[in-house]
């Protein structure tokens, strides 16, 4: 490692190590494929009784562990299927904090986002039930936690009514998605006074709206990437080429456009990728002199396009023609 030129032995070890990693991952893939194949499942559920058909070396313990893994694999396959198709899935987590509310029970919300041809790492929202306080204490099953939950004065008056009300505990939503606003809209806290009439919580709406925002965000990002690709593919001979496009704000709704001659512009995208406004300014390099709006450049760029994707298409067709 320390020597600047690795010895041939080191190189060999390195390559063997990488080979091991590949083989191991191959083994894993094969294992899961075999375990999830229907024939394996049927073999495991009722192993053939006749001695010829019985595979060699299968002891009851091995069979047991195989069944165990098969059932795990089945569950995993089902989960993957749900995650792929439904894109919003839930799961349960145990909060490791010994002082966690509600005995550490946490509901996890997993939101898949499919953009640019692949699944992004899912976003998680983890919710707990801090409003269950009063009811738990009364039930007297304070196993380490129940006794201390009297701090929640809020729901004391109406025990149990808000027992299943959720609050966002942890999440991995990027700050450009207005999670707090959505949570305040769809998962409001119980009213401060018991006589007050508050709104109901709606987890389904919350999840759908949140997913919508996340998907929109990813699609906007993808559109900007497409735009950049289209610009890179543009013919070199083109006069006054666009040099760069970059998202200018957190939500990727505004795009900064830089032309080759130093002009800059802004494209404002709506929530769903429609073009709200485009402005190009005469930069220092422009012939127009001074700073002002350059409508001609904008017309050249946008034309009749209503959506950013149309601009991408225009740019692409420009290269072909």
């Amino acid at each position: 490692m320390s020597s600047p030129t690795p010895s041939p032995l080191d190189i060999e070890i390195e390559s063997l190590k990488s080979k091991i990693t590949t083989l191991k991952s191959n083994l894993r893939i094969q294992t899961s494929t075999i375990l999830s194949s229907p024939s394996t499942t049927s073999l495991l559920s009722n192993p053939p009784s006749s001695s010829q058909l019985k595979p060699k070396g299968i002891t009851p313990t091995i069979l047991k562990s195989l069944r165990h893994y098969a059932s795990l694999q089945k569950a995993h396959n089902q989960q993957s299927l749900y995650r792929t198709c439904a894109t919003i899935t839930t799961f349960r987590v145990q909060d490791p904090d010994p002082n966690a509310v509600d005995g550490g029970a946490v509901l996890g919300l997993r939101i898949e986002v499919f953009a640019r041809g692949r699944f992004a790492r899912p976003y998680y929202v983890l919710m707990n039930r801090p409003f269950a306080a009063g009811s738990r204490k009364e039930n007297g099953k304070g196993t380490g936690n129940g006794g201390k939950e009297n701090g929640k004065e809020k729901s004391r008056g109406k025990k149990g009514k808000y027992a299943n009300w959720l609050r966002v505990h942890r999440h991995t939503i990027p700050p450009c998605v207005p999670l707090s606003g959505l949570a305040a809209r769809y998962l409001p806290a119980p009213p401060a006074r018991p006589d007050e009439q508050g709104r109901e919580q709606d987890l389904v709406k919350f999840a759908r709206r949140l997913r919508r925002e996340l998907v929109r965000y990813h699609h906007r990002l993808a559109t900007i990437t497409d735009l950049r690709k289209a610009i890179l593919a543009e013919a070199e001979s083109e006069t006054n080429k666009i040099q760069n496009v970059t998202p200018a704000d957190a939500e990727a709704k505004q795009i900064t456009i830089e032309w080759e001659d130093g002009q800059t512009g802004r494209l404002v995208m709506g929530d769903d990728g429609e073009i709200v406004q485009v402005v190009a300014l005469n930069g220092s390099g422009g012939q127009g002199g001074g700073s002002g709006r350059d409508r001609e450049v904008v017309r050249e760029l946008v034309g009749q396009a209503k959506r950013v994707e149309d601009v991408v298409r225009r740019l692409r067709s420009g290269t072909k023609g």
């Binding site: 694999q73 396959n77 299927l81 942890r170 991995t172």
Partner: peptide, 30 residues
């Protein structure tokens, strides 16, 4: 839940969290 690079460090390929991956999170023989 947030760590993007979690699995990458272990020499496995990229994002293990994709639902298209059918390999068990803790596969046998590992």
């Amino acid at each position: 839940y947030a760590d993007e690079m979690r699995e990458k460090g272990k020499g496995k390929k990229g994002n293990r969290e994709t639902p298209l991956d059918t390999v068990l999170p803790s596969p046998p023989l590992s």
